[in-house]
Structures are given as C-alpha cells and as structure tokens.
C-alpha cells in the first residue's frame, strides 16, 4: 500500500495509467467516455475535499459545474472572449458566488446543509432553464472549440490529453491542500468544530474556503466539458447530476483523493456498460449502488485497500 501514501508515488502511478490507457482505447467513443470520466473525477476530487475531509455535504455542485459550462459558452459565444479567459472568468464568478453563499449556508449542519445546497443547485438550474434569451433555455446552447495559446483542442484524442493533464493538476492540488495548514484545519473541523475552534482554528472560514475551492474545481471541469461536447443543456445542472457526483465520492471512498477518482470513473463507465440491458438498466444500477455501500460502507478504494492490507498482514 505504499503506492497510495506518498504524494508523488500516487501521482506518478496515475500519470502512467493515463499514458497507458489509450493503448486500450479502440476508437473515439472510448476516448470520449474516458474524457467524461476524467472531468467527473475533477469535480469529485474537489467535492471530496468538502465531503470527505471537511464532513460537509453538498447536493448542489452540479449547479457550479453548469455555471462554469454556461459561463464559458456565453462569454465565448456572445462576447467573443478567448476560451481560456472565459474559463478563468467563469471560475472567478463561481468562486465569488460560492464565497457569498458559503458563509450563511455552511453554518447549517447535516441534512439542513444538504437541503440548502440542494436549493441553490435547483435555483441555478431553474435560472438556466428560464432565461432562454441568454442560455438558450431547455433546448441548449452551442459553443466552439477550446483554444490554448493559439492551438485548438478538438477531437477526442486532443481532449484526452487535455483532460489527463488537468486531472493530474487537480490531484496534485488536492493532495497538497490536504497536507497544507488549511487541510489540517479542515480535518480538525471535521473531527469537532468546537474542538477546532478551541485550538484556534477559524472553522467557519475554513469551511468557506474549501467550499469555494470545490466550487472552482466544478466550474473549471464544467467549462472544459462544455467545449469538449460543443453543446450543453441545463440538464448538466440538475439535481440528478448533483446526487450523482455525491454518489461518486461516497462510492469511491470518502476522504481519499484517489477514491473520489475511482468512484467517478466507475459511475461514468457503469451506465455505458449497463446500456445494453435496456429496461433493466435502472434496476441493476440501483442494486449495484446498494450492494457496494452495504458490503463496502467506507467506499470502494478504502475497503479494497483494507482487504489488501489484511491479506498482506496474514502473509
């Protein structure tokens, strides 16, 4: 298990996997699914900081994802802002929104926090659906390729390397953040807010900062996703997508950056695998979700790691 502990080791393994996976990807479709999985993973890694390390739930992160996507679409399409600048501006706006909302909302606990974040996600979704003059409404909005320093990212293969690079960056940021003073404060807050306060930690400020960071992760992934698909609909900001993101984090393993990644990859692949079961798809998906959580309540990666550790110990 030494692989997963030191910072650089995990990242190197991940980089190697990202480099090797294309050998097994037969065509554009497989690349596309891999890219979708990586974008979800970026959101989940950010969300995991909040849920896994901070112990704060959010059922509204699809809203931030959608804001990033629509921000990029509107800025590049309507105001001809360069894509990279649009991505940064959108992320900045999302950070501001998350900051303003964060303070009052993060005072809430447990299911009340779930409700509040759910409400924010739904409000964002409603606005995207209703303001059709700006967002195209339920019929969606088209946008162009992503360009980076004059080079245009287009086609599944370009996007694969782009997403892979951003994913590595996200993992690196996340691992560093966890080991930073902010990360330690966050874990202290998770353990006991009163205890953390007594030790001089600004618990409210800590939570807000991580909320903002996770929202920015979602926004950036949303912007990139929008450019990759070339077309977006308000569905990406729906409550279902928010619930899906939380499920990815919990299924993969809370408080584990790589767990969040594994959860995102699995839940992106699963519907593709199950699509062939037609009407039984939903039943099978539900059963797998229940089964995983019943038999691996800590999530896939931590539970498997535990198994391996035990097996090694016995040897």
């Amino acid at each position: 298990m030494t692989l997963f502990r030191p910072r650089t080791g995990g990242i190197l393994v991940l980089a190697a996997i990202i480099a090797l996976v294309p050998l097994g990807l037969g065509n554009g479709y497989f690349y596309d699914v891999a890219v979708n999985a990586m974008f979800s993973a970026i959101v989940c890694i950010g969300l995991n900081l909040l849920i896994g390390y901070g112990g704060q739930i959010s059922l509204g992160h699809a809203g931030f994802f959608a804001l990033g996507a629509y921000g990029s679409a509107i800025l590049t399409g309507r105001y001809e802002v360069p894509p990279l600048a649009a991505l940064v501006l959108s992320a900045g706006a999302v950070a501001l929104i998350a900051f303003v909302l964060g303070r009052p909302i993060l005072r809430l606990k447990g299911h009340y926090l779930a409700m509040a974040t759910l409400g924010i996600g739904i409000i964002i979704h409603i606005v995207l659906k209703t303001e059709s003059g700006l967002t195209g409404g339920p019929d969606g909005l088209a946008l162009g390729d992503f360009t980076l320093f004059g080079l245009s990212v287009s086609g599944e293969r370009d996007w694969y390397w782009m997403a892979g690079g951003v994913l590595l960056l996200a993992v690196w940021l996340s691992l560093n953040l966890i080991d930073s003073p902010l990360g330690r404060a966050l874990r202290a807050v998770h353990g006991s807010e009163a205890g953390a306060e007594a030790a001089g930690v600004d618990s409210s400020g800590t939570k807000v900062r991580v909320f903002v960071i996770s929202a920015v992760f979602a926004s950036v992934a949303g912007s990139l996703f929008a450019h990759k698909n070339g077309f977006i609909t308000p569905d990406i900001g729906s409550f279902f997508h928010s619930a899906e993101l939380v499920t990815m984090v919990v299924l993969g393993g809370m408080a584990s950056t790589f767990g969040a990644l594994v959860g995102a990859v699995i839940l992106t692949l699963l519907p593709q695998v199950l699509a062939s079961f037609e009407q039984y798809e939903a039943m099978i998906l539900g059963a797998i979700m229940m089964g995983t959580m019943i038999f691996m309540p800590k999530g896939l990666l931590p539970s498997l790691a535990g198994l391996i550790r035990r097996w090694r110990g016995e040897r």
């Binding site: 919990v250 299924l251 939903a282 039943m283 998906l285 539900g286 979700m289 229940m290 959580m293 800590k298």
Partner: peptide
Amino acid sequence: SDVVTIVIITIGASIFLRG
C-alpha cells in the same frame, strides 16, 4: 455505517424501485 453511506443506499434503492 455512516449516515452518508445509508443515504446513498436509499438513493440506490430509489433508482432500483423506479426501474
């Protein structure tokens, strides 16, 4: 298990029952 774990189980159950 954690409350979040059980919540995810109930989400899974709702998908299953709808299906």
